[in-house]
Simulated assay, not measured.
Amino acid sequence: MATFKDRTEAGKLLATKLSAYANRADVLVLGLPRGGVPVAFEVAKALNAALDVFVVRKLGVPGQEELAMGAIASGGVRVLNTQVVRSLHISTETIDRVADLEQQELERREKLYRGNRPAPNYTGRTIIVVDDGLATGSTMRAAIAALRQYEPNLIIVAVPIAAPEICQEFQLEVDEVVCYNTPENLWAVGRAYEDFSQTSDEEVCRLLDRANNCQLAASS
């Protein structure tokens, strides 16, 4: 049975576990596009926190694109799932070819989502990184590796749903992990949602524009 109606409800529920970070000027909520942005929007709204997007791209195994062999993120970061790479005997050339294609999409999305807005300052901030769920965790790991380069004060991983072993792994990698629900045998994140339809670029842009306008109004 699904745990959440949709990503909006998931974000509202996830925010209830993050109330300690409400109304703090140092907090920045980052949504991983595309599906993480609607969740992050609700979290940021509930916490009265700034919202932005952090672009990460999964590196799918050729012919099995849903299976992640790694991910890339802003700042030239590449994280590989060594278990998948070794078990499927994936060559360096194949990884490089997929990474080059995904790099083009990463750059396209950064330009589309942010437009003329500069990237936020991450240094010294408390950063809450939000996605709509964690399966293998490779995408989130790439985001964390990239963000560490900017020396934030704290990194918190927050997701509505994840396998318990993935949540435990991330506890060794970041300052805090908030997983709203951790069912056993989580085969696919989408099974936790009644509506897991793909989030469009247009919706990501709309939510980021709404959040940015609210932040400008609050600071004026």
Rank of each mutant, 00 (worst) to 15 (best):
F196V: 08
V79Y: 03
Y150H: 11
V204Y: 01
P152V: 06
L207H: 01
L67N: 07
Q168H: 11
A211T: 02
Q168L: 11
V61A: 05
Y21T: 02
N213K: 13
Q64T: 15
P33H: 06
E105S: 06
L208Y: 00
T139D: 05
V29S: 04
N212T: 15
A142V: 03
K17R: 14
A44H: 05
L47H: 06
P164M: 07
Q83D: 15
Q171Y: 13
E173H: 06
Y150W: 12
D195Y: 09
N116A: 15
D96W: 09
G35P: 03
L80H: 00
V174R: 04
L216P: 08
G36W: 00
A71R: 00
F41H: 04
G60R: 01
R78M: 04
L28V: 06
L172K: 14
N23C: 13
N181W: 13
E151C: 12
V129I: 13
D175I: 07
S200C: 08
I72H: 00
G36A: 04
E9W: 06
I127S: 01
G137C: 03
T182V: 13
E165H: 11
P160H: 06
G63A: 07
Q198I: 09
S138T: 07
L154H: 10
R191L: 14
A211V: 03
D195C: 10
D209R: 13
L80C: 02
A135D: 05
A40E: 04
R117V: 08
P62K: 09
N212C: 15
R210W: 14
D100N: 14
L154I: 11
G60F: 01
S197L: 12
L47F: 10
A162K: 02
D6I: 06
T3A: 12
Y150D: 09
G76Y: 07
T136P: 02
N213C: 13
V129D: 05
Y150P: 04
N153T: 14
T3S: 12
T139I: 07
N23G: 11
M140C: 07
Q149T: 14
F54M: 08
A20M: 14
C167H: 09
K111D: 12
V177F: 02
T123P: 12
R78K: 10
L80D: 00
E169V: 12
G60V: 02
L88G: 01
L216T: 11
L134T: 03
L216K: 12
M69T: 00
P33R: 04
N23A: 13
G35F: 03
G70S: 02
R109F: 08
L14G: 02
G70M: 00
A119P: 07
T123R: 15
L51F: 05
A218F: 09
A146N: 01
E169A: 14
A2Y: 13
D131I: 01
T123I: 15
K5G: 12
T8N: 12
Y150Q: 11
L172Q: 15
D175E: 09
S87N: 11
Q215L: 12
L88M: 07
Q149D: 14
G35S: 09
G124F: 08
V129E: 04
L207V: 03
Q64V: 14
G124E: 08
A143K: 02
K12P: 05
V55E: 03
V37Q: 03
A22W: 10
G11P: 01
C205Y: 13
I144D: 00
L101Y: 11
A142K: 01
T94Y: 04
A135Y: 03
A158H: 03
T16P: 08
F170N: 00
I90Q: 05
V157C: 06
D26A: 11
L112C: 08
L32D: 00
P33Q: 06
S87V: 10
